[in-house]
Amino acid sequence: MSKFIGASVIMFIPWVLLAGSDPSELILGATVAMVIAGIIYRNLDYAFKSGSLAGAIKFLVVYVPVFLWELVKANIDVAFRVLNPRMPINPGFVKIPTGIKGDYGRLALANSITLTPGTLSVDGDENHLYVHWIDVMGESQKERGELVSGPFEDILGGIFK
């Protein structure tokens, strides 16, 4: 049941964003979302728990601003590197430790690392992410982990356990 509700809500929200809040559109969207959710919900591994709403709100309010700030800062940094005639790059593949375990938390962390320029997640294993970094700094894994994922790790860890 919780999967069914979760799937319906996840399909209904994009519909509202696309079609607007006209009553007939809302009824149509809700009906179609529930029919599709009814067909596919057995195959989902996502469950809509009472905690996930609080997590989602925390994600939007705490995480998104931090992320956007890092995004702008890092984009300007890469823009300067590209425009600099000497092109000061110092790339490498580094292995960084991560404490985040769940699939969705991992996805959010890897995507954040990739979206902030200068770092690109390539692969991962149990406790690490492998990141291509355009300007390698730091000596140890721990130090590098702090530099690459530091701003995200703490917040995401609090949201996704």
Binding site: G92, F93, K95, V122, Y130
Partner: peptide, 11 residues
């Protein structure tokens, strides 16, 4: 060739 470290190789 300027790549500094390659931790992926071992993986």
């Amino acid at each position: 060739e300027g790549t500094q470290v390659d931790d992926l190789k071992e993986l």
